[in-house]
């Protein structure tokens, strides 16, 4: 499996070399998407709650639902999406070479990525932070007690850098064991090779729920050592596509703020509130300004749900991940989710 990843990275590099010049020349990404009739969406190879495929090959998860919502906005059909599972190394090459139209794969928005890799982040779908998970038997209560500890890490993220920064700042002589694949890193941690496992806190919850022999034996430490705003990214070659993706995210947030859900969206369309009418396409030409049908937000909300529904369905308290809304609540509820006005 490691080998496949390596080969994948090499193939991706070759793709960049040979160049799918068509992606840039055939016109804007949005036009190409409309022509082919579906969105090619780059997702994680498997992270419970964010993007997982079931035995039928159907994808679910928070990152997957974002792609579905965009497909609903463009085509009126949330299933007009094809998925490309990417590992941490392939993902950026897959996006910039034109293999996928959008990368919705728990990817942290950083300056280097936004400015120098030929891509643009469209917004934040999950405010996360890097944390640590330890066995309860180790009797560790704080990440600052990890002096001299061995920590298992999966390569391919900003995780290693954050770990080193945290250890340098707190003078902890941490010894990392770096794995290529998520699977092997989990095997090593649950086998007892490392005292701690580090990745984004949402990932820790996901791994604990799915892979721990007994989830109750493991503790996620309270400290978050980094800011990890996760969000979808698009190529730099099409501003219209970038704008559309950005506003679908705002529409999902706006819907939650205004109390529009997949269940009541039909009634809400005849609401007296002009803001809601504009969002759902009963008033004005918001969709046409974005280059799609006026029912863009209506379709996305009806078929996928508002942001709150997406969150609760995939990673919320009723799921095995048991994640609280926290920073991901709307600004009205003390969170950071704030949708720009649709007008």
């Amino acid at each position: 499996m490691m080998f496949r990843h390596l080969v994948g990275a090499a193939v991706a590099a070759v793709f960049a070399v040979v160049g799918l010049s068509g992606a840039a020349q055939a016109g804007a990404t949005l036009d190409a998407i409309k022509k082919k009739g579906f969105i090619q969406c780059g997702v994680n190879t498997g992270l419970a709650g964010f993007s997982v495929a079931d035995s039928q090959g159907a994808w679910t998860g928070l990152d997957v639902d974002i792609c579905k919502a965009i497909a609903a906005a463009v085509f009126g059909d949330a299933n007009a999406v094809k998925y490309t599972p990417t590992n941490a190394q392939q993902r950026f090459t897959a996006l910039t070479s034109g293999e996928v139209d959008i990368l919705s794969r728990n990817t942290t928005w950083t300056l280097t990525r936004d400015a120098s890799l030929g891509m643009m982040f469209t917004g934040v779908t999950y405010y996360d932070g890097q944390g640590f998970m330890v066995p309860k038997s180790a009797k560790i209560k704080s990440a600052k007690e990890l002096k001299g500890a061995t920590v298992c890490v999966q390569t391919g993220t900003t995780t290693e850098l954050n770990l080193a920064d945290f250890a340098r700042a707190n003078k902890l002589n941490i010894k990392p064991v770096v794995f290529e694949s998520l699977e092997e890193s989990k095997v090593a941690f649950f086998g007892g090779r490392c005292k701690a496992y580090t990745t984004d806190a949402s990932g820790l919850a996901s791994i604990r729920s799915k892979d721990a022999p007994n989830p109750d034996d493991y503790l996620i430490l309270p400290e978050l050592i980094s800011k990890e705003p996760l969000g979808p990214a698009v190529r730099r070659d099409d501003v219209e596509w970038f704008t559309l993706v950005k506003w679908v995210l705002y529409a999902l947030g706006e819907a939650e703020e205004s109390g529009i859900t997949s269940a009541n969206v039909n009634e809400m369309k005849s609401s007296a509130d002009p803001n809601i009418q504009r969002l759902l396409g009963a008033l004005g030409d918001m969709g046409q300004k974005l280059g799609v049908d006026n029912a863009w937000a209506f379709n996305a909300i009806k078929q996928v749900g508002n942001y709150g529904e997406i969150f609760e369905r995939n990673v919320g308290q009723k799921t095995p991940l048991h994640l609280a809304r926290g920073l991901n609540a709307t600004w009205k509820n003390g969170g950071l989710m704030y949708a720009m006005p649709v007008r």
Partner: peptide
Amino acid sequence: NTTLNQTGQAI
């Protein structure tokens, strides 16, 4: 691999 991920300089 780690360098590639941090810098994005795949080639």
